[in-house]
Structures are given as C-alpha cells and as structure tokens.
Design a protein around this nucleic acid. Structure first.
Length: 332
DNA sequence: AACAGTCTCAACCGCCTCGAG
DNA sequence: TCTCGAGGCGGTTGAGACTGT
C-alpha cells in the first residue's frame, strides 16, 4: 500500500480558479489527456488538490460542457426525471447531453424547485401539496392559446411562466459568479423557443387544425401515457390512427439519440452537437413517457402547463414532423 | 451613493463504490 | 479477504453580483 493520499500537503490553494490556473490545467489535459488526477496538480504546476482539478475540468473547462440557459425542454426533462429518479443528478445529467450534474443540481435548487413550490407541487414527491387548499394545481392547457405570452405582470410574477435565466457573462464569455435578475428582466430574457411557440399559438386558430394538417403530412399522433391526461387535444390525437404508431415509433427511434442507452457515446453526443432549437427534445419526452410508464415510478401529478406540457409535447412532436408547420413558421 | 438583503453558482466537503495491491 | 486510494456523487457553503430602499 504505497499510494499517496490525493489531497495531502500544505499550501494547497482553495477557492475560485484563476485564468492562469485554468490555462495550465487545460494545457496539461490537452497534452496528456484526462485521468491520473492525483498527479496532475504537480505535473501541471498547480497548487491544487487533484480532486479540485477534476471538478474544475469536468464542470467548467471541458470543451463539450454546455453552458448557458436551460431550454424549456431541458427543464421539462429535469422535472420529469427528478420525479421518477429523485436527486440522482448524474443520472439526470446523462439525459441532458453536455450538461453537468452540478449544473443540473444548481438549476434545480435555484429555479425549478422554487417553481414547483409556487405551483403547489411538492418538489420531493412531485405531488400536489395537500396542505394548502387555496392553491390549485394547474391542469394542462385546453389548447395552445393558453400558451400565449402572459399579458400582465401578474402572470409571470408567480414565476409559472417565467423563462429560464440567462447567465451573465464576462467579456471573455465566461460566466460571472452570482447575479440575480428581477422578474421583469427575467421575462425579457424569454427563450427563443418560448417566443416561437407563442407566435405559433397566436397564429393558428386551433390545435385541432394544426394536428389535422400535421397528420395529412404522413405522420400521426401516438398513444402516449401523456395523452391520457385530461387534456382534450391529447385525447383527440391519441385515437386518430393507431395503425401508424409503429411507423412513428420507428421514425422517432431513428432520430432519438437516447434510444440505445442512457449512457451516450461521445459520438452520439457530438451528433446532437447543439441542443438548442435544432434539437427535438420531444422525441426524448415521448420515449421517456414510455419508459416511465413501464416503471413502477408513476407520476400522478398534473403539472401546470408551463412546467410540463405533456399533450403539447406530443403535439409538438407531430408538428415538428410536419412540413406544413414548417411552412407556417416560415410565414410568421 | 450607500447599505442590507437576496440570489446564483462555482467550489468544497464528506460519504460511497470500486478496483488495485 | 482486507486495506486504501481514486473517482464519483449529492449536499452544502460562501463569494460576489444584483436589487430595493
């Protein structure tokens, strides 16, 4: 037993990393690769604990770490996975390629947990808080119109429709520490996804029309667990064309990077390179719904439509496949 | 302008698991 | 089989930025 302890030795630096330290660590790892964290500080000329180096690299410096605001789709995934898996942050983060467990955890603690509480949903059990009868748990929207942008401060002052925060960044693009934005400022930072959806919601006259148009484009809805929610449009699409479910499932599997395993190869992750507007999270949501349906963990919560939009996710999935929707969006 | 309170998140802490010796 | 260190993970902390007065 001649191994040295990882973090012994006096004079080890703690606290925030400097740019110089970052450069040293990046330079060393680029040259020698990851691993052997115990020896990295000495070899890289850093007065840091190896563990600290590993955390700094994996959570911040690693090139494929995605930084910045969480999309509404990512938020939904986090909430849904947390409902079924609990505080398994690394597990949850694996379903959000390029996001770190630390970031997911922080986002949950600072944003999503509060929002669930404001929605009178227990963030631990994901069930309605029974103790407060004055609050009503929102039900999924009757149609897309209810997804239109809030028209008054009152609506988003509850944070229910509050978009994700955008991180403030320094001149060099690195995120600054700390920082709190007022609700109004937060709302101004509404994600492009939300804005687009609001435009769509305002543009079309009814969800049914959209779905009808969508289905004419060779795809139809599938019978998802979500579709059983008390939301009219989900039920409509759920029974339209069962015969094409297999086709849709195959189609989704083709595009679903998560379908093989919750653990993604680097190739797979790179293939999804940018999980912004270009990535269709609804595929993942659809699969997740199937998986969770088969598990013992059963979510009985009807989330507010701004937290989870099961039927809407389903509808969006169909819409995404529809050439007609693409044309519609182009005209907006 | 100054101050106190609030908020965020990078970093640390401590525990656990796994594998090498 | 046992010991111990590396790596992984979840919980917590505190520096610093922001907000309100």
């Amino acid at each position: 037993m001649s191994r040295k302890p990882c973090c012994v030795g006096e004079g080890l630096k703690k606290g925030a990393w400097t740019t110089e330290e970052d450069k040293k660590l990046i330079s060393y790892i680029h040259e020698h690769g990851e691993g052997g964290w115990r020896d990295i500080p000495q070899k890289a000329g850093l007065k840091r604990c190896g563990k600290s180096c590993r955390l700094r690299w994996t959570n911040y410096l690693k090139p494929d770490v995605k930084r910045g605001e969480f999309s509404s789709e990512e938020e939904q995934i986090i909430i849904m996975l947390h409902a079924s898996r609990g505080n398994k942050w690394s597990d949850i983060a694996r379903h959000l390629p390029r996001r770190t467990d630390n970031e997911v955890k922080n986002y949950w603690n600072t944003h999503l947990k509060k929002r669930l509480i404001e929605q009178c949903i227990d963030p631990v059990t994901h069930k309605p808080l029974a103790s407060n009868s004055n609050h009503t748990v929102n039900t999924p929207p009757e149609n897309l119109h209810s997804l239109a942008a809030p028209s008054s401060d009152k609506q988003y002052s509850r944070s229910s429709s509050m978009p994700s925060l955008s991180r403030l960044t320094n001149k060099d693009g690195t995120p600054v520490q700390g920082g709190a934005l007022s609700h109004k400022k937060r709302f101004k930072k509404s994600s492009s996804t939300s804005r687009l959806l609001n435009k769509v919601a305002a543009k079309v006259t009814s969800v049914k029309e959209i779905l009808s148009a969508s289905m004419e484009g060779s795809l139809s809805a599938t019978t998802l667990p979500y579709a059983s929610h008390s939301n009219g449009f989900s039920e409509q699409i759920g029974n339209e064309e069962d015969s094409s479910n297999a086709f849709l499932t195959n189609t989704l599997a083709e595009f679903d990077p998560f379908s093989q395993s919750p653990l993604y190869s680097e190739h797979e992750i790179n293939a999804t390179s940018d999980l912004g507007m270009d990535y269709d999270f609804s595929h993942f949501l659809e699969k997740l719904g199937r998986d969770d349906h088969n598990e013992e963990n059963d979510m009985n919560v009807e989330y507010g439509h701004d937290l989870l939009i099961p039927g809407f996710a389903t509808g969006l999935m169909c819409l995404k496949k529809s050439h007609q929707l693409a044309l519609m969006i182009k005209t907006i």
